[in-house]
């Protein structure tokens, strides 16, 4: 454990400096160094990175057509020929999983990007403007928290006839934006009272300029966390909808492989591989994103770091009072 300690000091220093630094111009090495300095986010980044690399090189490593049809090769357990076994139709599951990573990741990524930017813009603008706009957005957010999202998505995907990528991205974003809008709004509310926002307002800057020039850059770590959160929720939900058969099941993706496994009751026949590998791929990716999120949370809220590491508790003692914690933002 102790050999990890030297990395912690810079982590904390960076997080203290981060807002000022980023305001001058987004600089890549800064945030990457920050992510790499935390054990959890480093591991998470590595896991997600691996999945992305696999998705990119998928066409070169997939050994067969993922939708290949061969009754002779059907229902085979994992072997050297078929690393992850084959489906009822004789398709190679390994190829399905690596090729499927592409659609799953793309869908999750764009849905998360759309949902997070909606949440950020709506949440921050509402917090800044206050009054009626804030009330409306707040009620909207709360209503989305009361309507159960999965059933809503299930019903919506029943209504849409076309299950193309774009439609699904929009549908997912429409339902998922409220998740983080609440936290971003609360965070913006607490930032709003800070001097630099007052200064910007006093000097007559426009609302848009304050939102994008002052608030967004200072909330970037929180927005990044929101993005990661919605990313994995979108991944899960999308795979889930496919699994339920409420998507285009002719495409190749993790959820679709799971759907066919479920439809053909492979589990009940004792065939574990058709559900295990796509499920594990999804779980692996989600776990990577969860770790990444936990890492980001730790440097926004140093109190969450484990106490039994003596080095850290001392730092917390010295800096604890000065760092705003996440809870303060939420309450």
């Amino acid at each position: 454990m102790s050999q990890l300690d030297p990395t912690l000091d810079p982590a904390l220093d960076l997080s203290l400096e981060a807002p000022r630094r980023i305001r001058r111009g987004f600089h890549v090495p800064g945030w990457l160094a920050l992510l790499l300095s935390n054990t959890k986010s480093r591991l998470g980044l590595a896991m997600v990175g691996l999945v992305v690399v696999v998705a990119v090189i998928a066409p070169w490593i997939s050994v067969a057509d993922p939708n290949g049809f061969s009754l002779l090769a059907a229902r085979q357990a994992p072997s050297w020929n078929h690393l992850f076994g084959t489906t009822d139709q004789g398709s190679d599951i390994f190829s399905q999983v690596v090729i499927g990573a592409r659609r799953s990741l793309l869908l999750g990524f764009f849905a998360a990007a759309l949902a997070t930017s909606t949440a950020a813009v709506l949440g921050i603008t509402a917090a800044l403007l206050g009054g009626l706009v804030d009330d409306v957005v707040n009620v909207l957010i709360n209503i989305f928290l009361v309507i159960p999202p999965i059933p809503l998505l299930v019903v919506m995907s029943g209504y849409v006839q076309d299950h193309g990528m774009t439609t699904m991205i929009v549908v997912l974003a429409l339902v998922l934006w409220a998740f983080e809008a609440r936290i971003l709004r609360a965070q913006a509310l607490s930032l709003k009272s800070r001097d630099f926002v007052d200064a910007a307002r006093a000097s007559g800057e426009s609302t848009a300029r304050i939102v994008f020039g002052e608030l967004v850059p200072n909330m970037i770590s929180r927005i990044a966390a929101a993005f990661v959160l919605v990313f994995y929720i979108a991944l899960l939900v999308d795979a889930g909808l496919e699994f339920l058969g409420l998507a285009d099941v002719s495409k190749t993706s993790w959820g679709v492989t799971l759907y066919w496994a479920q439809t053909n009751s492979t589990v009940l026949q004792g065939e574990w591989w058709p559900f295990f590998f796509p499920g594990a791929a999804l779980a692996f990716t989600v776990l990577g994103l969860v770790l990444l999120l936990a890492g980001i949370d730790e440097f926004t809220n140093p109190r969450l770091r484990s106490e039994h590491k003596p080095h850290r508790s001392r730092l917390r003692m010295l800096f604890g009072g000065r760092l705003a914690t996440r809870e303060e933002g939420v309450s």
């Binding site: 589990v267 574990w272 559900f275 499920g279 999804l282 989600v286 969860v290």
Partner: peptide, 22 residues
């Protein structure tokens, strides 16, 4: 519990069905 909750619920369900049930 953190690891368990990070697992997709339907994957946990399938694993439970296969290992604990079947």
């Amino acid at each position: 519990f953190m690891a368990l909750s990070a697992f997709p619920a339907f994957f946990t369900a399938l694993l439970g069905l296969y290992f604990l049930g079947l």
